[in-house]
Amino acid sequence: MVDLRVRLAGIELDNPVIPASGTFGYGYEFAELYDINCLGTFSFKGTTREARFGNPTPRIAECPAGMLNAVGLQNPGVEKVISEELPRLKEVFRKPVMANVSGFSVEEYAYTCSLLDQEEQVGWLEVNISCPNVHDGGMSFGTSPRAAAEVTRAVKAVTKKPVFMKLSPNVTDIAEIARACEEAGADGISLINTLLGMRIDLRAKRPLLANGTGGLSGGAVFPVAVRMVYQVYEAVGIPIIGMGGVSSAEDVLEMMLAGATAVEVGAANLVDPFVCRSIVEELPGAMEKYGIQDLKEIIGGGHHG
């Protein structure tokens, strides 16, 4: 029997597979398809203080081995998330869930986190300082070590739950940002968010996305994500949730060898709604194939010297 369990900032997961925020809603669309309790946990749709409609459409563009999205953090706002979405989520998912939070000011991050801190089912806060699709917020906090640390400190001050800072790959030195978050008290690091991209419509001769730019995800970004997880693992001592283009059990193993304690699956959910269940089912076979007994033991196992 292989052991799939990992410990993520003090909470045990049955396996390291976590659907990523923004690709899994609040879980119940997927719960109609399969029992989502087979997952380690999932990170629910990014939550802000106020309700947001997000960007105009088109919000989606395809590219080779991936897609661009510019949804722009559509969500009903933290109060409705707590009063309407979390009770429904609880009916279909009985494990601790990861609350994904975004904001436009340090105060907003702290406010939203302080409300979600009161929610029993929330196991971790994943603080998104890396959304490329909103203006005057989001990613701008994730591209400066000082601002990233400031958000981290503000959130840590209002919650006892473990805080994972979700970082942007759109920076020159990801390790520096991760270190700043660790020094400011972060319990872990999530990476990577999407890479800023653009497609142009040849017929209309203008960007395909109404927002102009969007975030690239899918298989195309996997090697970038593995590299950044690898770099951050060498820079910090706190756990890492690795994500970016993961779509198979072997991708999960590769991400863990790079240094991830757990692994999020994003865009792949949109193409194959069953992919996370498939990964959980295929992990034992993949572990046996590569001579792995205990998944915990391979975390960072790709680092030598």
């Binding site: 690709t23 899994f24 459409t57 949804v71 559509q74």
Partner: peptide, 27 residues
Amino acid sequence: EERMGCGFGACMGCSCKTKYGNKRICR
């Protein structure tokens, strides 16, 4: 019609505003 990501309500790629609130064209 709208450009869609998933087609089943997960990604919020095809949202629109209606008098009954935000809706996903796909779902």
